[in-house]
Amino acid sequence: MAGRRELQEINAGSMADIAFLLLVFFLVTTTMDTDLGLARRLPPPLDINQPEPPPIKQRNVFVVLANANDQLLVEGEMTDISELKEKAKEFIANPDNQENLPSKTVINVPFFGDYAVSKQVISLQNDNGTSYDLYIQVQNELAAAYNELRNDLAQNEFGVSYDFLVESKDKAKVKAVRKIFPQRISEAEPKNINIGGK
């Protein structure tokens, strides 16, 4: 072509399409950083005037100790973190009604009728030198033990997993399952800290 170029009009009709394309692209790729974590409830502060709670029978308590070298002592035995969940599951459910595992009381639970619920309590005690990583792993394994038992129970009774019940907000059933396997993780009072705070 000879001569000077003409200034041509750019077709802007597809601009909106491009704009929407970009918008959709960013909408899809942008991840909102959701905060995930283990939700726990701290016990209320100790009242000095409060009478001592009645002692819990030793067979009902599952003692987990974590020392400063990140070693675990579970019910008096050195245990690896990978075995903790199975041990906790056996303790919580006590499937064979053993003498040294938690005793059971029969209570009436909706959907299940009369059900023998164990009086389990898990006691977790850690040293000031225990690493946070191990602490979270222990909390996680214990929560996993409860969740797996709840899952199995819900699967047998309702044909769906406990997770599904929670997600579908089936509150009555969730409550019934929780009543049979209540998550009772008690953390020992730190001994060297003054709780009165004077």
Binding site: L42, N126, Y132
Partner: peptide, 27 residues
């Protein structure tokens, strides 16, 4: 994750004192 539990326990005690009992260990 490499933090020792000592300081965390102190913070938790502090939270208990002011009745801020709902906590979430972010992971």
């Amino acid at each position: 994750k490499e933090t020792k539990m000592g300081v965390i326990t102190e913070v938790k005690q502090e939270l208990r004192k002011v009745q801020a009992l709902k906590i979430n260990y972010s992971t």
